[in-house]
Design a protein around this nucleic acid. Structure first.
Lengths: 115, 115
DNA sequence: CCCATCGTTTGACATCCATCGAACTATTCT
DNA sequence: AGAATAGTTCGATGGATGTCAAACGATGGG
């Protein structure tokens, strides 16, 4: 049923393993990763809600396979981070790491006029 | 403003026809245009020398045809501007227009660690 | 007038990329 | 255990994209 608001308070549950947190990639890779409408929508959605979100929480007109591909691109560029939590993959924006390597880049992109 | 808004370097030079100055494109297009090593090198080179430069002045390991292609992509994204001057095409970075639409974007990219 | 210079356009080619459906894995719920 | 849920991985496919060589157009110098 609609049992949300789970917050994973079940102890003894050790499934929360961090998924390969890669270093932030070079500029071209990051720009290429962000130069896609779907991925930019993902990033914008992540930015507006400052918590970890499962993949299914992004309302995008693509299949799960395609969504998984985009998450991989963003993850390998070091832009996002994913953490397994039960059957979900909680995604967070690696804002601090991004800001450290490319100061102002993410801000200027997120502040860009959404079309 | 930066005070860089000069529209007429040499007055009355007949052949100096402006080449379709397009408006700055949407974020994805701009990011995609900048998300390429060659084009990023072009932009960086343009940034370091704050004058108009002919296409041949960019020392890049590609043929003229490929270079022309990259210039077109940048031009159509509204990032650069080209002006015919005799047989040369003087290229300038449209910094003011870019900054107006996406404040801080170009700066953060140009300030990024060059690899 | 001829020709060298500068850059574009075209056609071709290989590669990458976004997308999908289907099969698979892992976890949770009944 | 069995079913349901959440994502991944694996081809496959159609569409961009970066690259080149060759042909072309415009401009300026002998």
């Amino acid at each position: 049923m609609g049992g949300l608001t789970e917050t994973a308070t079940h102890e003894g549950h050790v499934g929360a393993v961090d998924l390969e947190p890669r270093p932030v990639a070079d500029v071209t890779t990051v720009l290429q990763a962000l130069g896609d409408p779907m991925r930019l929508a993902i990033i914008g959605s992540l930015d507006r809600s400052d918590g970890a979100r499962p993949c299914g929480a992004f309302d995008l007109p693509v299949t799960k396979a395609t969504l998984s591909h985009h998450f991989r691109v963003l993850r390998e560029a070091g832009i996002i981070q994913q953490r397994c939590e039960g059957t979900r993959r909680m995604t967070t924006l690696r804002r601090a790491e991004l800001d450290a390597v490319y100061p102002g880049l993410l801000d200027s992109i997120l502040r860009a006029p959404r079309s």
